[in-house]
Amino acid sequence: MTVASSDIVTGAINRSLPARVVARTGGGVLRIFLIVVALVWLVPTFGLLVESFRDPAQYANGGWWDAITHPGQLTAHNYVELLKNSTMTSSFLNTIEITLPATILVVLIGSAAGYAFAWMEFPGRDAIFLLVVGLLVIPIQIALIPVIKLYGLMGISGTILSVIMFHVGFGLPFAIFLLRNYFSGIPRDLMEAARMDGASEVKIFFKVILPLGMPAIASLGIFQFLWVWNDLLVALVFSNATSEPITVALASQTRQFGSSIDILAPGAFLSLIVPLIVFLAFQRYFVQGVMAGSVK
């Protein structure tokens, strides 16, 4: 298996249909088409970036592209104001406080369960695992009302903990599914050798399974991180004004789109820059996570 095949950068080995088209037409049309597509994909985000650096007084006078010919419209003022805006800064911190525990818990609990499903014998194991596979597609919407009542009974309504707990619950089916499949591919000899040396199951889990399972755990971690960071619906339902993440804080401003653009554009950019960095830095693991859920 080559690294490339699991990467975004997937190279073909042989002469294929487009290869021959390229050879015959010099690739001019194809190349122009792909450049246009790439531009179409870049322009929306680029526009948001430019808008976030524009003087909001200019918004009503013209689009962000005016700033290309009139660079005087550009200013860091919006970002300075955003950092002074306590709603935005505290919601940004809330996003971090929600995302990190929700990611770590899913990885830990999912790893333990994945190990049990892969390597331990217990009654009903395969049936329970099929149930987990089925739960993968259950929409989170069905859980909103009962869970909010449950949180009321537990006295944790509106807290960051309540948001985290929900994310962990709906992150687990995928985590168990992914990790069980990966762990079951770890060579049996390694575990038997550890047992010979008198290692306990807990020790095997930490010393053998987790280190060898790192690629899958990394994929899961990136995935869960991005999913929780970018979530809107769960936080919309379970958080309140003091625990809301940045997605909820921004969503509440979208109704007055034009007059809030000086908050929306830089806020949206701030909220997307973290996942963007995570994605570009760990792109390979991210793609693996997507594919583990999909391609056979």
Binding site: S6, M214, S219, R284, A292, V295
Partner: peptide, 8 residues
């Protein structure tokens, strides 16, 4: 260590 789900 090439990872999960590489479509192989």
């Amino acid at each position: 260590g090439a990872g999960v789900g590489a479509g192989r």
